[in-house]
Amino acid sequence: MNVFMSTLRDGTMKGLKTTWTLAKVIVPIYIIITILKYTPVIGWIAILFEPVMQLFGLPGEAAIAMVMGNLLNLYAGIGVMATLPLTMKQITIMAVMLSFSHSLLVETAVSKRVGVSIPMILSVRIGLAVISGILLNLTI
């Protein structure tokens, strides 16, 4: 009983901590992107990245989610994704790409600590993201 209750309490605290961590990332990013959507800035970014994003069947704005997800973390990428009008196919493609390649600054450091070389880990992860994005766009 005691262990059960303390586990329940610890789990709830971790849930609270994780929710707070993701809220701190998602809320400001969502607000900034929503405001930017009413300015020409988003349009410029979209046009700039459209040729690349087209390879994955994604709109140019999706590049912002990719950059945020890769530099910061998944929460940041998801925060941007939530503001964009995307189809289920596009959401799945972005989910797969971001799953392979995200939080590169932090996670590459972690991988290096266990002895995997940085160029290797980066090329594998980014390579998987690019290949899976192109293939998924063609197949699903």
């Binding site: 789990g11 809220a23 998801i78």
Partner: peptide, 24 residues
């Protein structure tokens, strides 16, 4: 912006809470 962002956090929180408890 505010309501949309809170809705996104909520939709993730309802997954994160049970998940963290189960993992604990």
């Amino acid at each position: 912006a505010v309501f949309g962002s809170l809705k996104s956090v909520w939709s993730i929180a309802i997954i994160v809470f049970p998940l963290m408890i189960v993992m604990e």
